[in-house]
Simulated assay, not measured.
Amino acid sequence: MGIGYINGKFTNLDELVLPIDERGHQFGDGVYEVIRVYNGTPFMLDEHLDRLINSSKAIKLPITQTVEDFKNLILEAVDKSQLMDCNVYMQITRGIVTRNHLFPTVPVSITMTVRPAKLISQTTREKGETAIFHEDERWANCYIKSLNLLPNILAKQTAFEAGCYEAILVRDGYVTEASSSNVFIIKDGKVFTTPLSKQILPGITRMAVKNATNLLNIDFIDKNFTPEELLEADEVFVTSTTSEVLPIVKVDGKLIGTGKPGEVTNRIYQQFLKLI
């Protein structure tokens, strides 16, 4: 069950609505957000929408809607879906117009879906997940949450074919992030993660984890680290809207710490649940 939306109209998810001259379809010319809804309430909605606006500005997308407009639209969609625990996917593109590389003078196109949340099982959380290292082949502006995700998809597929959950990306000898999540290591009770820059997405769950560590009096340190330092960490976890806080217990076939989810990661996850 779920619901769709395109440019002012709510639709069924199986209804054919995408125009062939949509610039998101033809160029990947747009941005998006994924928002988790818990018990009918979108989590960190303001932060998600701020990032959406910032991404739009970064690609010179001429949106006229305000954060409040988007908030009302999302709440209406969640209400119409009748789903209490769901994922909202919102996409904004440069519009519907005959294919041409130059910016058109047409309204932006807004589409959205609301679907039931896919939960990670408690068994998986208790066991932890695995990952591989993969070269970061993405463009220079990964802070923009754009529709151009082909390098991420290829890395994620490579991880899947290796029997792993994630691909941890490495650029110039340092970990940046993963194919669809931010990466954290824990050493001597301290949390380390890649500093915010154009090379990584400013994750909303990353922000929530920083809040959680502050509440727990755990040091949260923005610091670049190498794959070797990651393998020598006591614990590793990744974060995203859909993964939440997920332990990684093996990378490239090598166990992290004891090979089981660690105590600090679990404390952070439990505090994250309280924030929800």
Rank of each mutant, 00 (worst) to 15 (best):
M1T: 13
I3G: 03
Y5A: 00
I6H: 07
I6V: 10
F10T: 14
L13P: 12
V17L: 07
D21Q: 14
E22V: 03
Q26T: 11
F27S: 01
F27G: 02
D29P: 05
I35E: 00
I35Q: 02
P42A: 05
M44T: 11
M44F: 14
L45I: 05
L45C: 07
L45F: 12
D46P: 05
L49D: 00
D50Q: 11
D50M: 08
L52R: 00
I53L: 08
S55D: 01
A58E: 00
A58T: 00
K60V: 02
Q65I: 04
T66M: 03
V67R: 15
D69H: 12
D79C: 08
M84T: 13
M90L: 15
Q91M: 08
G95C: 04
I96F: 04
T98D: 14
T98M: 10
R99L: 06
N100K: 14
P104W: 01
T105D: 15
V106K: 14
S109Q: 05
S109H: 09
S109I: 05
M112Y: 11
P116N: 03
A117Y: 15
I120G: 05
I120Y: 14
I120P: 06
S121E: 05
S121A: 10
R125C: 09
K127W: 08
K127V: 07
E129K: 15
T130M: 07
F133M: 03
H134K: 12
D136E: 02
D136G: 01
R138S: 01
R138E: 00
A140W: 03
I144Y: 01
L147W: 06
L154H: 05
L154P: 04
F160H: 15
G163I: 10
G163W: 10
G163C: 14
C164Y: 09
C164F: 09
E166K: 11
L169G: 03
V170K: 06
G173H: 09
V183Y: 10
V183R: 08
V183F: 08
I185W: 09
I186E: 01
K187W: 05
F192I: 02
L196E: 04
S197Q: 11
K198G: 02
L201I: 15
I204F: 01
R206Q: 06
A208D: 01
N211I: 06
N217F: 11
I221S: 10
E228T: 14
D234A: 03
D234H: 12
E235N: 10
V236K: 13
F237T: 06
S240C: 06
E244N: 09
L246P: 09
P247L: 02
K250V: 04
V251K: 12
V251L: 08
D252V: 04
D252E: 11
G253C: 12
L255T: 15
K260V: 13
P261Y: 05
P261M: 05
E263K: 15
E263I: 14
E263P: 12
N266V: 07
Y269D: 02
Y269S: 04
L275D: 04
